[in-house]
Each structure stands twice: as C-alpha cells, then as structure tokens.
Lab assay of single mutants.
Amino acid sequence: NQASVVANQLIPIQTALTLVMMRSEVVTPVGIPAEDIPRLVSMQVNRAVPLGTTLMPDMVKGYA
C-alpha cells in the first residue's frame, strides 16, 4: 500500500508547508504520495487542513 501525505498539525489557510507539518501514512482514500513531501515544502495550502487530514492535490497551490 502506498503512503500518502497527512497533516501532522492544523495547517492554517495560506500557510507555506514545512517538513514538520507533514507525515506519511497509509490511508484511504489515497492522497498526495509521500515521496512528494520534498516537493511540497514551501508550497501553500489553499484551505485550512485539520490534524490527521490527508493532503489531496487540490489542497496545495501549484501542486496539481
């Protein structure tokens, strides 16, 4: 099973992502693949992302 990127904390809207905000976890449905974590650093979320939420491509500006 492929690991996805999951929020390690509440990430407020417009926040630039850092490594400490994300973790990898095998979840359903599958979100952004964990191997993309380095690419996500400094990208902004376009909505508030609660703790434990799987990051989906449409939540990160410039990802999809």
Rank of each mutant, 00 (worst) to 15 (best):
N1M: 15
N1K: 08
N1Y: 15
Q2I: 09
Q2P: 15
Q2T: 14
Q2L: 15
Q2M: 12
A3D: 05
A3V: 07
A3F: 09
S4C: 05
S4M: 02
S4D: 01
S4V: 02
S4Q: 00
V5C: 08
V5N: 02
V5F: 04
V5K: 00
V5W: 03
V6T: 05
V6F: 03
V6S: 00
V6M: 03
V6W: 03
A7L: 03
A7H: 00
A7T: 09
A7R: 02
A7Y: 03
A7D: 01
A7F: 03
N8H: 06
N8Y: 04
N8T: 13
N8S: 10
N8R: 09
N8I: 05
N8F: 04
Q9F: 14
Q9Y: 12
Q9E: 12
Q9S: 10
L10R: 11
L10A: 13
L10T: 11
L10F: 15
L10V: 12
I11S: 01
I11N: 01
I11M: 03
I11Y: 00
I11D: 01
P12R: 09
P12F: 04
P12S: 07
P12W: 04
P12Q: 11
P12K: 08
P12H: 08
P12L: 07
I13K: 12
I13F: 14
I13H: 12
Q14E: 15
Q14A: 15
Q14Y: 15
T15K: 07
T15R: 07
A16D: 06
A16S: 14
A16F: 15
L17P: 02
L17C: 04
L17E: 02
L17K: 00
L17Q: 01
L17Y: 03
T18D: 05
T18S: 09
T18L: 07
T18R: 09
T18I: 06
T18K: 08
L19S: 06
L19Q: 07
V20C: 12
V20S: 15
V20R: 13
M21F: 04
M21L: 05
M21S: 03
M21Y: 05
M21G: 00
M22V: 07
M22K: 01
R23E: 04
R23G: 06
R23W: 04
S24C: 08
E25Q: 09
E25F: 07
V26P: 07
V26Y: 12
V26A: 09
V27M: 05
V27Q: 00
V27T: 11
V27W: 04
T28P: 01
T28E: 15
P29R: 04
P29F: 04
P29Y: 04
V30L: 13
V30E: 14
G31E: 02
G31S: 02
I32W: 03
I32A: 01
I32Y: 00
P33I: 08
A34L: 03
A34P: 05
E35V: 12
E35W: 09
D36T: 08
D36H: 13
D36R: 09
I37C: 05
I37S: 03
I37L: 12
I37P: 02
I37D: 01
I37R: 06
P38E: 11
P38L: 13
R39W: 10
R39V: 09
R39D: 06
R39T: 08
L40S: 00
L40D: 00
L40F: 02
L40A: 00
L40R: 00
L40V: 04
V41T: 06
V41Y: 04
V41K: 03
V41R: 05
V41N: 01
S42Q: 13
S42M: 15
S42W: 08
M43E: 04
M43N: 04
M43P: 00
M43G: 01
M43K: 08
M43A: 07
M43T: 02
Q44F: 15
Q44D: 03
Q44T: 15
Q44G: 03
V45Q: 01
V45I: 05
V45R: 01
V45M: 08
N46R: 10
N46D: 08
R47N: 07
R47V: 12
R47Q: 14
A48W: 09
A48Q: 13
A48G: 07
V49C: 06
V49W: 04
V49Q: 03
V49K: 01
V49Y: 03
P50Q: 12
P50M: 12
P50I: 06
P50K: 09
P50R: 12
L51I: 10
L51T: 10
L51P: 10
L51A: 13
L51W: 13
L51R: 11
L51H: 10
G52P: 02
G52F: 04
G52Y: 04
G52M: 04
T53I: 08
T53N: 10
T53M: 12
T53K: 08
T53W: 14
T54G: 00
T54P: 06
T54Q: 03
L55F: 09
L55V: 11
M56F: 09
M56G: 04
P57E: 07
D58Y: 15
D58N: 12
D58R: 07
M59Y: 11
M59T: 05
M59A: 07
M59C: 06
V60S: 01
V60F: 06
V60L: 09
V60N: 01
V60W: 03
V60Q: 00
V60K: 02
K61I: 15
K61D: 12
G62W: 10
G62Q: 09
G62Y: 10
G62L: 07
G62P: 05
G62K: 06
Y63I: 05
Y63D: 03
Y63A: 02
Y63K: 02
Y63H: 04
A64K: 12
